[in-house]
Simulated assay, not measured.
Amino acid sequence: MRRWFAFALCLLFVSMTAHPAASQDLKIAAVVNDDIITVIDLLVRTRVAMVASHVPDTVENRQRLSGLVLRSLIDEHLKTQAAKSQGVTVEEADVTARLNALAQQNNITLEEFKKRLAASGILIDSLADQFRADIAWQVVVRKRFRNAATVSRKDIDDELAQIKENEGKPEYLVGEIFLPVYAPSDSAAVEATGKDLMSQLEQGANFNDLAQQFSQSPTASTGGILGWLRADQLDAGMRNAVTAMTKGQITGPIQTSGGYSILTLLDQRIAASDQVDEKAVADRLTTQRLDTLARGYLSDLRTQAFVDIRQ
């Protein structure tokens, strides 16, 4: 396969040399194992991300976000490769459902959403590919970590005891945009990217929209919502920030386990134990475990992969 890939790259180079007009569009932005991400792929996805997250399409914004979009594309290819190697396929009905949900968030029909994208020079296929990779990844994670994420009766009882013990204490409804750091040498660049996203939020960008496009966490599909959490359930890096925030505030990037996070406090309440839904408790514990395992698995894939960034 590697030999075939090298041969294909040679053919691509010859083709680009013979047709200079096409060379810019086919210029390689990154190589991910046996996959190529072209400059045109990066430009299209950057535009999709800006339109979907309602970020003004300016040269400055494109430059600020292109690095993050490229990181997202690399991770997307790794997820797709993992799904393919494990025989995971995605039903088109599931992709359409995600597209419909996004259109509804914008208070328009899917057809109107397609027209709006087309008016911006974007085919909805680009967004569909993104959702397809995300759905496939969710299947991979559930299959791979089904046993490791299983919640026992004791786990539920222990959590119920914690809820009872913390009755009357604050709980926080938190949103997160998570940006992973795969190697120590990447830390400064990731933090800088987080600052770029923070500047977009300060200029009025919607947190949920940015989370859906840029967060590298399984919660991205729900706009980055982590759910109701007590202080003791928060990542150590988040705890001081969240407990000091007021409702509606956004802060970050702050260093958390495995990367940097931008956080928002959506709401706050006093914990009560008289109306606890055991199924909701079990679902939340499972989701938290899958999130942690998925982050670790993607980090391992990135560490083991051949990634050559040229852009």
Rank of each mutant, 00 (worst) to 15 (best):
R2P: 11
R3V: 09
C10G: 13
L12K: 01
L12S: 05
F13I: 09
F13E: 13
V14N: 00
M16H: 02
T17V: 14
A18H: 03
A21M: 14
Q24W: 07
Q24V: 06
L26E: 09
A29R: 05
D35I: 08
V39E: 09
T46P: 08
R47K: 15
A52M: 09
S53F: 10
H54E: 11
P56R: 09
E60M: 08
R62T: 13
G67V: 04
R71T: 06
I74W: 04
Q81F: 04
G87M: 10
T89D: 15
E91K: 14
E92K: 15
D94W: 12
V95L: 09
V95W: 07
T96N: 15
A101R: 11
L102Y: 15
A103I: 08
I108N: 10
E111D: 15
K114T: 10
R116M: 15
R116I: 10
A118L: 14
G121H: 12
I124N: 14
S126C: 03
S126N: 09
D129T: 11
Q130N: 12
F131S: 06
F131M: 12
R132H: 08
A133K: 01
D134L: 02
W137K: 00
V141P: 03
R146M: 02
A149R: 00
S152M: 06
D158I: 03
L160D: 01
L160N: 07
Q162N: 15
I163S: 07
K164W: 01
N166V: 06
P170M: 08
E171T: 06
Y172F: 09
L173T: 03
I177R: 00
F178I: 08
F178L: 07
A183H: 07
A192H: 03
T193V: 06
K195C: 05
L197N: 05
S199C: 03
A205Y: 02
F207L: 00
L210S: 05
A211G: 14
Q212T: 13
F214P: 01
S215E: 07
S215I: 01
Q216W: 03
S217H: 13
P218E: 11
T219N: 09
T219A: 09
S221Q: 11
T222Y: 07
G223C: 04
L226Q: 02
W228L: 13
W228N: 08
W228R: 07
L229H: 06
D232N: 14
Q233S: 05
Q233F: 06
L234S: 05
D235W: 01
A236S: 11
N240K: 10
N240E: 13
K247L: 03
T251Y: 08
T251S: 14
G252A: 01
P253H: 00
S257N: 10
G259P: 02
G259W: 05
S261E: 00
L263P: 02
L265R: 05
L266W: 03
Q268L: 11
I270C: 10
I270L: 15
S273W: 09
K279F: 07
A280G: 08
A282D: 01
L285R: 00
T286Q: 11
T287D: 07
L290R: 04
L290C: 05
T292G: 02
G296S: 11
S299P: 04
L301H: 04
R302A: 03
F306G: 10
